[in-house]
Amino acid sequence: MPDITLLIVDDHPVVRDGLRGMFTSAPGFEVLAEAADGREAVALATGLRPDVILMDLRMPGGNGVEAITEIIARGLPSKILVLTTYDTDSDTIPAIEAGATGYLLKDAPRDELFTAVRAAAEGRTVLSPAIASRLVDRVRAPQGSTLSAREREVLRLVAKGTGNREIAAELFISQATVKTHLTHIYEKLGVNDRAAAVAAAYDRGILG
């Protein structure tokens, strides 16, 4: 059986070196090239047509989701396995919707990574356990039903027209923490601003 050919895409040279070393030392894999951003990834994937592309997501100079979208649009046969440190819905969902075959976190054990690449090369979907369980929860639960108690408190105050500074004072948290809660609320409700969050919360019965 021929070796599985790989393209490694990551903006950190140390990560690329580590992955290259890992796969070069293991039987059954051949690293064809490395790319430091999404645009370079698309160009190399088009020319080399690797079996599997290990794709980071957040990179300057063309991010992973844009690269995945372009690679799929070009009809390339390569399977794309996202390998990232980020597991938020705002990263996971767009990558999978764009056409990624799988999604693993960078702290995955070496053997799990090898198994995932082999599975991806065969066209099988690969998801880290943490990502898989969150996607299942997202599908099963109505959007917004997973808001934490603290997020609901923040949202109730937002609905009253309370500003971030006042919310922070009332809940004894920092303004930065308020902003973090709002980011998570927007993600979970699928909205982009305070007004839309409040409207969505009333619409779904989160705020009565």
Rank of each mutant, 00 (worst) to 15 (best):
I4P: 12
V9M: 04
V9C: 05
D11N: 10
D11H: 08
P13L: 11
V14L: 15
G18R: 14
L19V: 10
R20V: 11
R20W: 06
G21W: 03
M22Y: 04
T24C: 04
S25C: 09
A26N: 11
P27F: 02
G28A: 14
G28Y: 08
V31T: 10
A33L: 06
E34L: 05
E34F: 06
A35M: 07
A35E: 07
A35C: 10
A36K: 13
A36F: 11
D37L: 02
R39I: 08
E40V: 08
A43H: 13
L44P: 03
L44F: 09
A45I: 14
T46S: 14
P50D: 11
D51F: 15
I53V: 15
D56M: 13
D56E: 07
L57W: 06
G62S: 09
G62V: 12
G62F: 10
N63M: 12
V65D: 00
A67W: 07
I68N: 02
E70C: 14
R74H: 13
G75D: 08
L76T: 08
P77S: 13
S78C: 14
L81M: 07
L81H: 06
V82M: 00
V82D: 00
T84F: 01
T85F: 12
D87T: 03
S90C: 13
T92F: 00
P94F: 06
P94Q: 05
I96Y: 09
I96E: 02
E97C: 10
A98L: 02
A98K: 01
A98Y: 00
G99R: 03
A100F: 06
A100R: 03
T101P: 10
G102Y: 02
Y103T: 05
L104N: 03
K106A: 15
P109R: 11
E112Y: 05
F114W: 06
A116K: 13
V117Q: 05
V117Y: 07
V117T: 05
A121F: 09
A121L: 02
E122H: 13
E122Y: 14
R124A: 02
R124S: 03
T125C: 05
V126L: 00
V126F: 01
L127Q: 02
S128H: 05
I131S: 00
I131F: 00
S133W: 06
S133E: 10
V136S: 01
R138T: 00
R138L: 00
R140M: 12
S145T: 07
T146V: 15
L147F: 09
S148G: 14
A149L: 15
A149Y: 12
E151S: 09
R152H: 12
L157Y: 12
A159Q: 07
G161C: 03
N164M: 04
A168K: 02
A168I: 04
A168N: 02
E170R: 15
E170M: 15
L171P: 01
F172H: 13
I173E: 01
Q175K: 07
A176H: 02
T177I: 04
V178E: 00
K179E: 11
T180V: 09
T180Q: 10
H181G: 05
I185Q: 03
E187P: 10
E187G: 14
K188T: 01
K188F: 00
L189H: 00
L189C: 00
G190I: 03
G190Y: 01
V191P: 01
V191Q: 01
R194G: 12
A200G: 06
Y202S: 08
G205D: 04
I206P: 00
